[in-house]
Simulated scan of single mutants.
Amino acid sequence: MEEAFRCYKSIDLKVRPIYHYKGDRVKAHIFLCMLAYYVEWHLKQKLAPLLFEDEEIDNNYQDVIKARRSNSAVAKDRKKRTEDNLPVHSFRTLLEDLGTICLNTVECSLESGKYVFDKITRPTEVQQKALDLLSISSVCTH
């Protein structure tokens, strides 16, 4: 829980202090923060092969001991490459990279008429791997 609140304020979500004076608004704000953290947590789990995250971590917290990183996580840190030889990202840099995928409206005029259609930029190898890990098809995203 402490990690979630730390994440809200500084690391990833960067939630600014928001002052609410009505109980319903405070509850709604906390709910939205928790929902955002929950979505981020699931994204990190799915995208772990592309991130500096330990994919082999045991989420069984019965004993409180210092966690040791797996050999694959240490190898990713050392090589800065995944098993597929793709560059490893932080969560933030991977989201920034995915943010460069965009939908373009293309207009062309030919003798037979004017044509307008939408075209999504072709994902890079890293972007395509991330979309595959999230089970998202870049063809049907609009």
Rank of each mutant, 00 (worst) to 15 (best):
M1H: 14
M1W: 13
F5T: 15
C7N: 14
S10R: 14
S10C: 08
I11T: 14
L13I: 04
V15H: 13
I18V: 15
I18R: 14
Y19A: 10
H20Q: 13
H20M: 05
K22H: 10
G23P: 04
D24F: 07
R25K: 13
K27A: 12
K27M: 13
K27L: 12
K27R: 15
K27S: 06
K27W: 11
A28S: 14
H29R: 05
H29V: 04
I30W: 04
L32Q: 07
C33G: 12
M34V: 15
M34N: 12
A36N: 06
A36H: 03
Y38A: 10
Y38L: 07
V39R: 10
E40F: 07
L43W: 06
L43H: 02
Q45G: 08
K46R: 13
P49Q: 01
L50C: 04
D54L: 06
D58R: 12
Y61R: 12
V64N: 11
V64Y: 12
I65K: 15
I65L: 09
A67D: 10
R68I: 08
R68C: 05
R68E: 14
R69L: 11
S72Y: 00
A73R: 05
V74Y: 06
A75T: 09
R78E: 10
K80M: 09
R81Q: 14
T82L: 00
T82Y: 05
E83R: 09
D84Q: 08
L86G: 01
H89W: 05
H89M: 03
F91T: 03
R92H: 14
L94N: 00
E96L: 15
D97Y: 05
G99E: 02
T100G: 01
T100Q: 12
I101K: 01
L103A: 03
N104V: 12
T105R: 15
V106P: 01
V106Q: 06
S112T: 15
Y115V: 15
Y115D: 02
D118T: 11
D118I: 12
D118K: 15
K119P: 06
T121W: 04
T124V: 01
V126K: 11
Q127F: 08
K129P: 03
L131T: 03
L131H: 01
L131N: 01
D132H: 10
D132T: 13
S135L: 10
S137G: 05
S137E: 03
S137M: 07
V139N: 14
